[in-house]
Design a binder for these strands. Structure first.
Lengths: 232, 232
DNA sequence: TAGTGGTCTAGACCACTCA
DNA sequence: GAGTGGTCTAGACCACTAG
């Protein structure tokens, strides 16, 4: 019934049936064995196609329950947040970096909450500005665990951004990302060359190495910043 | 050299080596054949493990070039944006919906830009408010192509949200998502029960069915809204 | 407990792409 | 041209779970 098989063509055909509403949300699809016969291929090949459809949320697969079209479709979106320097360079602009302040302090309540800590230990507090073509791009307010990452104290953060050093030298095992909007404080406004009260886009990231806190950063973007992704 | 193999344990072991910096960003890993010998399994099993590591951005695989540890690690995050009603109900709150306005109008420049259109055709313009426990939750400002989705004109949007109807009845093939922050206009502030100038989190989504525009929605969240995801 | 998807194998051929 | 990953097969057994 089909021409040539490959897992991508099977995937596309199933996706087409869903989009054309030949099968409706909640409907059960034939099992892998039957689909393999229909497409004239091995069951493994069907499995590969369904694996992807399940990963993108198009179908739901359950042993014994079979494969069903997702009852409540979601928009599944994937963002890659790169090292800020590379993000700027990818825009074709000159990258600049400027350390605003650093020091050992007791962490804020909100940072402790991000880490899931009850107490508020001392950590390295770093504030820095990333520039794109001499214009402020992202202001980051970061806490780094001196206990988990003692080496950070030897890094010259006036020259190298903690953002880049950590990602290249301290891979994380877990990461929590949060997006939100906030009004610019007077200090943030000055650094980002805008006005207090301006609406700013914020990306908060907290990372751990096997449940040991590494860092928590609030990356506050200059006005106009947008995060874009295409989903299929 | 290993105990029992399964693709997940191979994946975890490679991930461990990366996190423990036994292999550094840019380093080349042994080829699949060699890894299969090391782990005492079939090459297919190694392939399955590497497939996932490549999908999450941990390694980069190239034919002939081999498998290398990602030189520039990124934070890859996946968000599921569900139907708003389900999102509210998942919070354990009562969902409410309220149509603010609807009408056929020439689309705005920004909407035309989202669709990638040169001209500004007439589309159905719908404004609606989603409530969570009687409090404003998300205000959506939406354009729907009456050409691609003529059936929408027969839907009673005072009872059923366009958000839900479209997702269940008009699956898209392509979707572009954009996140940003903006100041509340007086009208938005009134609907969201906040003050003009407040910083609001905005999710813009544009969808197509095979390059034919379906809808473009600006979902403006009430103050305090956050989007959260865990990446591994 | 039986049906269904998930994993694994051993081997083959194909499709890139680096040198 | 040769090395490497990508796909496919035919068959087997396992693991989960709906009825």
């Amino acid at each position: 019934m089909s021409t040539r098989s490959s897992w991508t063509s099977i995937r596309d055909e199933i996706k087409r049936r869903v989009q054309a509403r030949e099968v409706l949300p909640g409907d059960k699809l034939p099992n892998d064995q039957e689909l393999a016969q229909e497409f004239g291929c091995a069951r493994t090949t069907v499995q590969r196609a369904m694996q992807e459809l399940a990963a993108t949320g198009t179908v739901v697969r359950r042993r014994k329950g079979g494969t069903t079209v997702a009852a409540h479709p979601v928009t599944r979106t994937t963002f890659d947040i790169p090292i800020t320097r590379l993000e700027v360079e990818a825009l074709g602009q000159d990258y600049g970096y400027f350390l605003v302040s650093q020091g050992i302090e007791q962490i804020s309540r909100s940072a402790a909450a991000s880490f899931g800590l009850q107490d508020q230990p001392e950590m390295l507090h770093v504030r820095a500005l990333h520039l794109a073509g001499n214009r402020p791009y992202i202001y980051e307010d970061r806490w780094i665990s001196q206990e988990t990452v003692p080496e950070i104290l030897d890094v010259d953060l006036t020259r190298e951004s903690a953002n880049e050093w950590l990602i290249l030298n301290r891979p994380y095992s877990d990461c929590e990302v949060r997006f939100l909007a906030k009004k610019a404080t007077p200090q943030e406004a000055e650094l980002l060359e805008t006005e207090a009260g301006e609406a700013l886009f914020v990306m908060e990231r907290t990372t751990w190495s096997d449940s040991a806190p590494i860092t928590r950063v609030r990356a506050i973007a200059a006005p106009g910043y947008q995060l874009t992704a295409r989903a299929k």
